[in-house]
Design a protein around this nucleic acid. Structure first.
Length: 978
RNA sequence: GGGCGCUUAGCUCAGUUGGCUAGAGCAUCUCGUUUACACCGAGGAGGCCGCGGGUUCGAAUCCCUCAGCGCCCACCA
């Protein structure tokens, strides 16, 4: 064994051995209680990033822990075809400007090849993390089985009327050339000029100047208060940063405007808004919006002369702009809503100003053919030059939607698409009566069927559902599940859903579009378990679906709670009648050590594969799970990783020490250690019992450190299990870290060097390896083999065992007395070490000391203190050990008088006298400081006890405890003073 | 604009029903080449728990105000 742990090579070797062992494959016929997690499938074209690494670490810990706890643990791996993301990448890789340059089939073949190549990469990277996945059940969101599930789901929902096709306002990604769901938008803050434009007498405000190029209704509020005003300019119109309007077409001449009373009367706002007009506004008349209705007029737009007419609608906000607006029915959601209410009047106004590529149509006149962004600038300039503007705000800030995959502009457009109706009533197939998908999703969490960790996401979840609109599931891309609908030449639907056993007429045409990638992802918890083929079929008791569905925990990053988690809940409940899992564990985003998002430009990114190469997967796993709590950012930096690398090395070296003590021969069973009728090892062969259910050691054989470490281990193992049960992985890791380092290594191993019990040493270390295994699978397996097994890795399964085959530690050897006794030893030894530091003594110099104690009861501690405190002797002061006989009348004062040349340490009220040359000054200072601290504490305790309400109302035990403390503090002070 | 959350040591963060002297890692200071480990050991220093108020015998913890920070949703006139 090397002095420093070297993970290189061995991790891959261990993973291969696990795979070869067959142990990773869950047994559907097992009697054990199932525990199931489905791996959130990484994008097949992706690289392993830190988010995956965190996910893998957390889920692997859960799986290994449950497996060692005796569950039939199943963790299903898989990959996601990631429709839009992959298609975008493939188009780029093939050097196409659009997929149409290649035929559909040819393109799909290329995409398939690409996905296959990339698949192996992500799978191998997943294995690097040590993930205990059942590869025999690996799934893919775009494979045959999942396609069957998709078609079945589509069919069910279509028949229930929950899937409909219709023309609606949708989000169009000009880059991906597809519709996107509301959740697939990413919003970007930008600053753009905001224009106030003349439109006849009206003034309309817009940031989208390019859309103001066509015939349009001017919409006003029917009950809104409007005014017609006369505008009298104040020439010359020259101001800083502005040029006089020399065109003579506006600004300088008298004219009339119609605006909201709100704008007219708020002078400050008016000046700010109509900042290109400098003059006087004089009221001509007042009117309600409805009085304006129906008026029509012609006016110049940047693209030429256009017709307008006035329409009333209550959607108008009188406080915004001038209280009037024109609408672009095909290019804005709100406008479309207004148009729907005025169908009869607006039939002629449904025309596209922007095409699917994001270019302006012929409607845009001079700007036709430009991109939206170009046209926005150009049209603004034209309008300014032509005097069509009455106001401008250069600092208007708003947010624009971008495509989350192709990062291009998203345009609202009207298009025929397929939708899942989340608010439509249907009859629950599982006896839930009339309900809606929305209601089922709400019930999942509200009814306590699903527990979200941390619970702050409950609110986010409900908020999302409350605002949820129908889910657009069709996509105009090729890579994905093609929508299972067939039309005849007239466009009538002739077939849908599953095709097995159905006659598909060759003349029918399948829908060109594919399904949203999240449609197949939403089926993942049960499509991976054989649904629909293995579900609900009588007499299929051994099916994965029966055994492992519902899943137990769904673990993922909180950022896909809506994309994925909510939709799995929706589909799971709808299709199987059961919520797909009982617990949702959401981890946060990995960020750098200062809480900043990792990004290439900042250079603070960490590549998980690179660091695994440097320090090994175990250290990386610990870095990702310790020091972070669910839902909160996971801070990660090289310092942290280094810290856990050091821990892994510490564990390694503890293993080396244990192995050295156990000798070259492997440990053999010591019959004297196993009690009559005690624990019987469940394992094959005559190996030592390292499983530790208690009843293993004879009381009399155990030293104080033995009893202490067994007791402490019992407590810590319990804490760790409890933490893992309650998904507090960080707390579990922290407890292990400190137990191993600060108790086992710092104290037990040190004590062992003096008085060795190799059975206990080996036993506790073996238990530590088991306890740590879920967090650090590689090094624990490695040490398990090195220290406790005789066989090589490949033979472990048949001849001995892998560590995961053992039981998770559950030891009941808590011994309060030993813990207290050992704690006193630790405190006295620490005090002695501090004394050496303070007095600048040679650390190697052995000291003489004395202590007052019961010689027999203190025997164990005495020896330990001598050894660990580097003493030559620690004599026990008792009445008989003092000169002048056995009278114990005033033992303390006699001790004092006979030893007043010795330095006195007060530890836990016990006086330790040390024979060293006393530096009077330093000693005085030390005592003064200690006394001050004690006095301060005494005052606090007395204050509390002198409060009658405290004695009255605080629990009795607490009051007693306070009294005991006061007593001890007082006695310590007395000893210091004497 | 609506909502959620955070503020604890120099840094990153724990602190689970209110109760011992508020903890950890890293950084820092002093000492140390003790044969498991220098990827180490020993010891130390460092906190009005954001500000102000309230409830309580008792508040980092519960309630309210304010300030600062972060996030989610909505928002294209």
């Amino acid at each position: 064994m090397k002095t420093a742990y070297d993970h290189t090579g061995i991790e891959d070797e261990i993973y291969k051995a696990w795979e070869a062992s067959g142990l990773m494959q869950a047994d559907v016929k097992s009697d054990k209680k199932p525990f199931t997690i489905v791996l959130p499938p990484p994008n097949v074209t992706g690289q392993l990033h830190l988010g995956h690494a965190a996910m893998l670490a957390i889920e692997d810990i859960m799986i290994r822990y449950k497996k060692m706890k005796g569950y039939e643990a199943l963790w299903i791996p898989g990959t996601d075809h990631a429709a839009i993301a992959t298609e975008t990448v493939v188009v780029k890789k093939l050097g196409l400007t659009s997929r149409e340059e290649m035929g559909r089939e040819e393109f799909l073949e290329e995409a398939r090849k690409f996905a296959e190549e990339k698949h192996d990469t992500i799978v191998n990277q997943t294995k690097k993390m040590g993930a205990w996945l059942d590869w025999s059940r690996e799934a893919y969101t775009l494979d045959e089985a999942r396609n069957t599930a998709v078609k079945t789901m589509f069919e069910m929902m279509y028949e229930d009327g929950l899937i409909e096709r219709g023309h609606r306002m949708i989000n169009w990604s000009t880059g991906a050339q597809s519709v996107l769901s509301d959740d697939e938008l990413e919003w970007e803050d930008i600053k753009e000029p905001f224009y106030y434009i003349r439109c006849g007498e009206f003034i309309i405000g817009t940031v989208r100047s390019e859309t103001k190029c066509s015939d349009s209704p001017v919409v006003v509020h029917p009950e809104g208060d409007y005014v017609r005003v006369k505008y009298k300019p104040t020439p010359p119109l020259v101001r800083e940063g502005d040029r006089p309007d020399l065109s003579g077409r506006g600004g300088l001449k008298e004219e009339t405007f119609i605006m909201s009373r709100h704008l007219f009367e708020n002078t400050e706002l008016r000046q700010k808004t109509l900042n290109l007009l400098d003059g006087e506004f004089v009221l001509v008349e007042s009117m309600k919006g409805k009085e304006l209705e129906g008026q029509s007029f012609e006016y110049h737009t940047y693209a030429g002369k256009r017709k307008f007419f006035v329409l009333c609608d209550e959607a108008i906000d009188m406080e915004k702009g001038s209280g009037a607006m024109t609408i672009s029915i095909c290019h804005a959601g709100d406008d479309y809503e207004i148009a729907k209410r005025h169908k009869d009047k607006l039939a002629d106004y449904y025309f596209e100003k922007i095409d699917k590529k994001g270019h302006m149509t012929q409607k845009a006149g001079a700007c036709a053919g430009m991109t939206v962004i170009e046209a926005r600038k150009a049209s603004g300039k034209i309008m300014k030059d032509q005097g069509l503007l009455v106001g401008m705000d250069y600092n208007y800030e708003h947010r624009v939607p971008k495509c989350y995959r192709s990062d291009c502009v998203v345009e609202p457009m009207i298009s025929p698409q397929w939708f899942i109706m989340v608010e439509k009533e249907f009859t629950d197939r599982f006896g839930g009566g009339q309900t809606t998908l929305k209601a089922q999703m709400q019930e999942a969490v509200r009814g306590g069927h699903i527990n979200i960790i941390p619970d702050k996401f409950d609110k986010m979840y409900f908020h999302w559902i409350d605002n949820l609109r129908d889910w657009c599931i069709s996509r105009q891309i090729w890579w994905g599940h093609r929508i299972p609908v067939w039309y005849d030449k007239e466009g009538n639907i002739k077939a849908y859903g599953r095709t097995e056993g159905k006659a598909i007429d060759p003349s029918w045409i399948q829908d060109e579009d594919t399904l949203d990638t999240w449609f197949s992802s939403a089926l993942w918890p049960f499509s991976t378990l054989g649904w629909p083929n293995e579900s609900g079929l009588p007499g299929s008791p051994d099916s994965d679906f029966e055994k492992f569905y519902p899943n137990d925990v769904l673990e993922t990053g909180w950022d896909i709670i809506f994309f994925w988690v909510a939709r799995m809940i929706m589909f799971g409940r709808y299709a199987t009648g059961k919520y797909p899992f009982h617990t949702v564990y959401l981890h946060g985003m990995v960020c750098d050590e200062h809480g900043k998002k990792m990004s290439k430009s900042k250079g603070n990114g960490i590549d998980p594969l690179e660091v695994i190469g440097e320090v090994g997967a175990d250290a990386v796993r610990l870095s990702l799970v310790i020091g972070s709590t669910p839902g909160n950012p996971i801070p990660l930096g090289h310092n942290k990783i280094k810290g856990y690398r050091n821990f892994v090395n510490k564990l390694w070296n503890a293993g080396r020490f244990v192995k050295m003590q156990m000798g070259v021969s492997k440990p053999t069973p010591n019959p004297s250690l196993v009690r009559e009728g005690g624990y019987c090892p469940p394992d094959k062969g005559d190996r030592p019992d390292l499983s530790g259910r208690g009843g293993l050691f004879k009381e009399g054989d155990l030293s104080l450190p033995d009893r202490w470490i067994l007791s402490r281990f019992s407590t810590v193992a319990k804490e760790v299990s409890e933490s893992l049960e309650t998904y507090q992985i960080s707390a579990a890791g922290d407890a292990i870290y400190h137990f191993v380092w600060n108790e086992f290594c710092d104290w037990y191993i040190e004590a062992s060097k003096v008085d060795m019990n190799t059975e206990v040493l080996g036993f506790v270390f073996a238990e530590i390896l088991k306890l740590t295994h879920p967090l650090c699978p590689f090094i624990t397996e490695n040490l398990w083999k090195e220290v406790f097994q005789t066989q090589e890795l490949e033979n472990l399964r048949t001849e001995e065992q892998f560590i995961i085959e053992t039981s998770y530690p559950d030891l009941n050897m808590v011994d309060q007395k030993s813990e207290e006794d050992f704690a006193l030893v630790q405190k006295i030894v620490t005090a002695l070490r501090k004394l050496r530091t303070d007095q600048k003594l040679n650390p190697k110099e052995k000291l003489q000391a004395k202590i007052k104690a019961d010689a027999e009861a203190f025997k164990d501690q005495q020896k330990l203190i001598i050894d660990l405190g580097q003493l030559s002797d620690l004599s026990i002061l008792s009445s008989s050990s003092l000169t002048g006989g056995s009278s114990s009348a005033d033992l303390d004062s006699r001790i004092k008088s006979e030893n007043d040349n010795l330095l006195s340490l007060i530890v836990e009220g016990i006086e330790v006298l040390v024979d060293i040359p006393i530096d009077e000054e330093a000693e005085k200072a030390r005592l003064g400081k200690q006394r001050a601290e004690l006095e301060k504490k005494k005052v606090a305790l007395e204050g509390r006890l002198s409060n009658p309400s405290y004695r009255d109302k605080a629990p009795e035990a607490l009051v007693k405890q306070t009294e005991a403390e006061l007593e001890q503090v007082s006695s310590e002070i007395a000893k210091l003073k004497s």
